[in-house]
Design a protein around this nucleic acid. Structure first.
Length: 273
DNA sequence: CGCCAGGCTTCTA
DNA sequence: TAGAAGCATGGC
């Protein structure tokens, strides 16, 4: 991987496979969109404008310092995805999925934002999930260049259900408030939970109302960098039954979560089941 | 215009 | 302890 500080911004190249489209639109993040030839979105209070290149991407208008401070970790650039992907090719069924969208990466998103996002995701369509999350930001987040940051837990913890009514989030509003209050008052220390053994971390997250096994697993994988986490939603359950009968998440090893993302994306695009 | 959505809680046997 | 209903809302 090479990193260059250019007039345009920071250019990252030399990546074996890296796809903004596959990474930003594979169901792990909800605040990025593609318009005018570039991906843009806001993460950790900063706007990113990204252009796909042959073997990497450009972060437009980004300084090297900001890249190092934030985006290098966000895009998980120091992990050797190609080596991990190659190891998946030994399994014929997994190879099909890993070859389908080889440019997928797991983003290392903010744990709090991920928690709320996947609470919102339950029994919901992606377009509506995106809409609710955007309303959370525009109504309660701080304005930043290019839009609004995701609001802090403290900010939401001071609200009540009537105040959340404009979100049109349905019964999930109560769940969001419970999560916010637990994070704000220290009952749910996300940065500490991120370091716990997987089982204990799951149990801690599931103390939040509306957080079950699936949402907890998504927070661990997308918001806590726990690559061994393996979310099982309806698509994954169908795919597992069909493509990997008898296999358990543990069978996929320490990077099971990355395998999961290949399988999930493949099964959604192919509409398995 | 119904159907159903990257589920979870609650209720029932 | 397993299985199903109910849940608020709105894309499609």
């Amino acid at each position: 991987m090479q990193i260059a500080d250019t007039i345009q911004g920071v250019e990252v190249c030399g990546l074996a496979h890296f796809s903004l489209a596959e990474t930003l639109d594979c169901g792990q993040a909800f605040r990025f969109s593609f318009q005018d030839g570039r991906w843009q979105g806001i993460a950790q209070g900063r706007q990113a404008r990204l252009i796909q290149k042959e073997d990497g991407f450009v972060l437009e208008g980004c300084s090297l310092a900001e890249f190092e401070r934030q985006w290098r970790r966000y895009f998980d650039l120091d992990r050797d995805y190609e080596a991990i992907r190659q190891s998946f090719l030994a399994d014929p069924a997994l190879a099909v999925c890993a070859r389908y969208a080889p440019g997928i990466r797991i983003l290392r998103q903010d744990a709090w934002e991920t928690l709320v996002s996947f609470i919102v995701s339950q029994n919901n369509h992606v377009p509506r999930i995106k809409g609710i999350i955007e309303r959370i930001c525009t109504l309660f987040g701080e304005p930043v260049v290019g839009g609004y940051a995701f609001p802090t837990a403290q900010k939401l913890a001071n609200l009540d259900e009537p105040a959340l009514e404009p979100l049109r989030a349905g019964w999930r509003s109560g769940y969001i408030l419970d999560a916010a209050r637990r994070v704000a008052d220290g009952r749910l220390p996300l940065d500490q939970i991120a370091c716990l053994p997987l089982k204990e971390a799951r149990e801690a997250l599931m103390t939040v109302r509306g957080v079950g096994p699936k949402v907890a697993e998504c927070v661990l994988l997308y918001g806590m960098g726990r690559m061994e986490a393996f979310p099982l939603d309806v698509w994954m359950k169908r795919a597992m039954a069909l493509l990997f009968p008898g296999r358990t998440p543990e069978d996929f090893g320490p990077y099971a979560g990355i395998a999961q993302q290949y399988i999930f994306h493949y099964s959604r695009m192919q509409k398995i089941g």
